[in-house]
Design a protein around this nucleic acid. Sequence first.
RNA 1: GGAGGGAUACCGAAGUGGCCAAACGGGGCGGACUGUAAAUCCGCUGACUUCGUCUUCGAAGGUUCGAAUCCUUCUCCCUCCA
Length: 411
Amino acid sequence: MSTELDVQLDQEVARQLKIISRGVAEIVPKGELSQKLRKSIATKTPLIVKLGVDPTGIDLTLGHTVVLQKMKQFQDLGHRVHLLIGDFTATIGDPSGKSETRKQLTREQVLENAKTYSDQVFKILDRSKTEIVYNSDWLAPFTFADVIQLTSTMTVARMLEREDFHNRFTQNLPLSIHEFFYPFMQGYDSVALKADVELGGTDQKFNILMGRMLQKEYGQPQQVCVLLPILEGLDGVQKMSKSLGNYIGINEDPVNMYGKTMSIPDSILLRYFELLTDLSLEEIEELRSGIASGSVHPRDAKMKLAWMLVARFHDGDAADRAEQHFKTVFQKGALPEDIPVVSIAAEPLSIVQLLTTNNLATSNSDARRLVQGGAVKVDGDKVDRPDQQIVPQTDMVVQAGKRKFIRLKVE
RNA sequence: GGAGGGAUACCGAAGUGGCCAAACGGGGCGGACUGUAAAUCCGCUGACUUCGUCUUCGAAGGUUCGAAUCCUUCUCCCUCCA
């Protein structure tokens, strides 16, 4: 109990707290985390950190990585990290952040998704230090009596405090009873895991607080909520999500990842640096002031971001190639290096058929529109009549818009 | 259980017998421009054998020369009452 030890302890708590706090939107309640950390360090008992995921989709997006990254930091600090696959909950459909009821999934879909999900997660998390748990383990055996006991702790009025429930209720949108159970289940997950910390996006606040409430109800110490900001998607306004199509997937090829990054509005550029890269806060501040003063070109900053992201999810070489591709195709308007080659018969055909049969257009009408809109080029020459006949030749390059190219190969 | 309101294209939302392949906004896609696949401006946005034809307005029937618009039944959603 010497003072020197206390000082060391204080320093360690401060160190961990600083790492944990970077980029987070909110820690609820604030003071409790440092107490938990102090106790954990003093007794050499790692904290139990929980992250619940909903195995509803296939591709992880950069949006998901924000919270996974935080999870990784806890891992690196030596805490016990539990990745909770909501296999049971996914069959209910969580309404969080949604304006309408989500579809319920079948068990097969959920298990399938869970597998692809965990495969991707380990691009970020350390597999050997991650415990994967499924909430069907404890939720599936629940009896109706258990459910009644669990739900008797809440009132309808309090459930309706949750923003999306409230909005849907007041806007006369459908709100099913079963959706009310979601927060209970997620909350009970924390009881089952005896979680010390639960991570999530700010849209998860209600559900995570529910965990606190239920833990108290079940006589456990209460978990701390660490809430991370919701990453805006490519449009710069709405949450990055698969359903909105404004996302960058972590499995995307380098060229697309780079290009999509370049398409984000300048307004969220720095936010991406802060939430998605390990660039220090000082360096980010330098970029900010550089852009403000005009000494740093926003485009160059964005190219740096795009490079860093590709390098992180692929590697430096891939990032270099993606950057090169971007420069040739978009900055200089030249042809890309690797155009897909398509085999074709030597018969003449109309430009419309050529576009449609090779998926450069979704339908003949679409192809027609592209031609009329001036988007179509054959060997660099604009084609402006839909009935224009083309005689395919090997190495002929057909372009529809700025991003779609094919190179023909006559058979 | 009773009374009433609603369902329109990717989304939101007009249209209430022919002028509706359906206003307008968003999104998407193209073009121009640029500092980038930012911003801004312009165009397009059901399909096809495209100066014409065919299939769309919750589903199925019906009335009519003609229906997204009227009638019947059904499905789903919302409100109020119980």
